[in-house]
Structures are given as C-alpha cells and as structure tokens.
Design a binder for these strands. Structure first.
Lengths: 218, 218
DNA sequence: GGAATTGGATACGGATTCGTATCTTAGAGA
DNA sequence: TCTCTAAGATACGAATCCGTATCCAATTCC
C-alpha cells in the first residue's frame, strides 16, 4: 500500500509528472502555485457553487489536509488565490499619453480575466448579497475600482491640459472601458482578446473625450 | 399535531398571512408567485451557492414536495423563475426617436435587475463554465443580447436617415449602454436607479453617435 | 547521516442536502 | 354534498461535504 506509485492521480492532473518520473513532492511556492491553478481550474469547470475542498485537493494532486493547514475556509482560500494572481493597477507607470495610459489600464483589467482563467467576474457575482462577500470585494476593490479611478485621473489631467473636453473627465466615461471588458467576459467568452481592448479604446473611450462630442446632450 | 395552526412559519415568511387569518392553501399562480419570490429572495440573501430546495420551500411557506412536483432540478426551477420574471425586449414599441428608443431599451435591461431583486447578473456568472449553464444562458439570451441587437437596429436606421454618424452604428456602441448597467449592478448596488439609466443615455450612448465624434480614431 | 519539518494519504463523525415516499387535508368543481 | 386534484407536512436513505485526527514518507536543514 505504500510501495505503489504515489503520484498516480497527480499524473492525471498534472501532465508535468510523467509516468516513470520520480515522485517529487512539491513544497512552498511550487505547491502553492499548483493549488491556485487547481482553484481556478475548478472554478472554470464546475463553478463556484460546486467547488469543494476535496475536489481542489484532488485536482492539485494533493490532499485536503494541505489545504486546511493554510486556509480555514473555502472563501479564504479563493480570496488568497486572487490576491496572488490579480494584477495591481497601481504598479502601472503612467506616461501622460492619454491613449497609451488608458490602454495600459484596460489591459490590466483584461489581465485580471486571463490570470484567473476567465473566472474573475464569475467570482464577483458568486456570493452577491451574502453575509461576508470576501471574494467579491477582493476582486472589485483590487482591480476594477482602482482602474476606474486611475482612468479618471488620466482623463482629469488631460482635461486640465486642454487635450480633451472637460465634461469627459467624469465617472461615467472613466467607467466605460472596464464596463465593456466585463460585459465581454460575461456575454461572449471568459477571456478578453487583445483586439477587443484596442477597439474599446479607439471606438468608445477616446471618442467620448474628443471635443464637440456630446455637446448637445446631458 | 394537526390542530395547531398550520401556517405558523408561513406567517413569518409571508406577512400577508397574518395571525388569526384563516389558513389559506394557495394554488396555481398564487403559489407559483410565492415560490418565485422565495427563489429571488434566497438568491439575494444567501446567494446561489447556498440556495437549497429546503430553504426555498421554507421561505415560500410550502414544502419540498411541491417544488419537486414542478421542477426536477434546482437549475430548472431558477431558469423557470427567470422566464416568468424577466422582461421581453421584443415587446417594446419603437417610435423612431433615437433617444427615446434607446432609453426604453435600457430601461428593459434595468427592469431585469429590479424584477429579479438585483440577482440577475449574480446568476449570469453563478454557473459559468459548467456542463449545462441553463440559468446563465437564460438571462443572457433572453434580455441582454436582444437589447443589444435592438439598440443596434435603432442605430442602424438612424444612420440610414443620416441622424447619426455611420460609424456609430456598430456592435460596440450598441453594447455600451447595457455594459454600463451591468457594471453598475455588479460594482455599486444590485438595482440600477433611474437617474443612472438617463445618465448613460445622455453621457455615453448619444455622445458616441454625434457627428464628428471619434473621427480621428479607429 | 540524522533530526526536524512539511507534504500527503486515509479514515471518521457530524452535518447538510438531495430526491422520494407516504399520508393528511384544503379547495375546486360537479 | 361528494369527489377528485393538488397542497403541504413529515420521514427516510443515500450521497456529499466539512473539518479533524492519525499516520507515513519525502525534503530540507543541521
């Protein structure tokens, strides 16, 4: 019972552990990475409602004990996985070029989808209205709101320099870009392609900032 | 055991059944309405992941048996509740006035939030990527996509009449309005207020359609 | 090489949920 | 008034999941 290959199932879950390879026991970061991969993999395949500790452990090629040694609840685990995988909008260097900066910030929102295998906004809604929406708040306050705020900053400075019309430096225009990406992920496919990000910049956000646009409305 | 007031718990769940009132046994539509109320109520309070048949039955003041007589799975029940509560964009009469028509169509998207007590897009993502995303597809294909398509129609006709610039009659502009509403429901609060809908029309969608806007981009 | 640490397998008790079966009774219709 | 349909309560076995306890083995550190 102990002589049989110990990584039989892991070989299924993780192709890197090929048959015949020595059973290597992962530790620290490598183990953590495998667990987070399994978390997002489970979210994608069975959804948040059916994600269980047992399944995550099996998918990661480890056991439930390892998970409970690190996180006491499922929500803690997922929130931690998000903190490790989500991009940080604050780290993006802003150049002063409106188009480039907005594009960079929207790619940050896009990255929050790809780095979580398209499950980011699945998570935002998963526990809406619950007593402790940990996961929900994690992703909202960590990526989307900072991005909207930074885009607002970019627009405001551009308006001060007279590059864009002043009315465009409002909340709505700043939120329009992220809104388009979120919608794409929900309606079309979970991961947003590069061309779509570029289209949103050139056909939605920037047109809203050009002088004479919208002068007759609002 | 049978002489005790039979609607003790229902009185808690449904204030309409006051103490002292005769124990009334609901049927047909009245019962169905109570069940659907309970479904959306549960979605709002405990979330999709923790919604169970037992809890829905208790909240509706009925029993699990009644639920299983109608729907075989939880997903069927929720999907049916959505079909009964969601608005139908196709029923909206289009006047030809661009602003009025877009406003009416966006109010339809807004109604899909209020009629489901703000849980509509919680549901879109609840079972993302699952084997049978019944609930997800129900709400997407029943409200959002028709609305986007109809807005696209409105824009296309307006472009033919020369009222708006031709480039604005594209998919992205048509999707911008719904995207803003979805984002509001996810980030801010589940039910979208009227003023926000009006702001989106006047500060996002219509400005994108005005001539000379975005001429230099794309 | 040996000790300490951590990964990993397994088993379990308890709680929850599912889906069904059974039975009683309220309400609609004849 | 009588009959039939459906509402609603209750109980249940099976399955699942949680969270913990226990034991063994692989790595790392000394």
């Amino acid at each position: 019972m102990g002589v049989v290959p110990v990584d039989a199932q892991r070989a299924q879950a993780n192709p890197a552990a090929r048959a015949g390879a020595v059973a290597t026991r992962r530790r620290g970061d490598a183990l953590l990475r495998a667990i987070f991969d399994a978390v997002f993999d489970q979210l994608r395949t069975v959804g948040y409602a059916n994600l269980t500790m047992d399944r995550v452990a099996a998918a990661a090629g480890t056991s439930k004990t390892v998970l409970y040694r690190r996180w006491s609840t499922k929500e803690d685990m997922i929130a931690d996985a998000l903190r490790h995988r989500l991009p940080s909008p604050g780290d993006i260097p802003l150049t002063g070029d409106v188009r480039a900066d907005i594009h960079a910030l929207l790619r940050c929102v896009q990255a929050s989808f790809s780095s979580t295998r398209g499950t980011a906004f699945q998570l935002v809604s998963a526990e809406a209205g619950c007593d402790r929406p940990v996961v929900r708040q994690t992703i909202i306050s960590h990526v989307v709101q900072p991005c909207i705020q930074l885009i607002g900053e970019v627009l405001r400075r551009a308006a001060e320099r007279g590059e864009i019309r002043p009315e465009a430096a409002g909340e709505l225009v700043a939120a329009s870009g992220p809104a388009m990406l979120v919608q794409y992920s929900l309606i079309r496919e979970p991961v947003v392609p590069d061309e779509f990000v570029a289209s949103v910049v050139d056909q939605i956000v920037l047109p809203l900032t050009t002088r004479s646009a919208g002068a007759e409305h609002g």
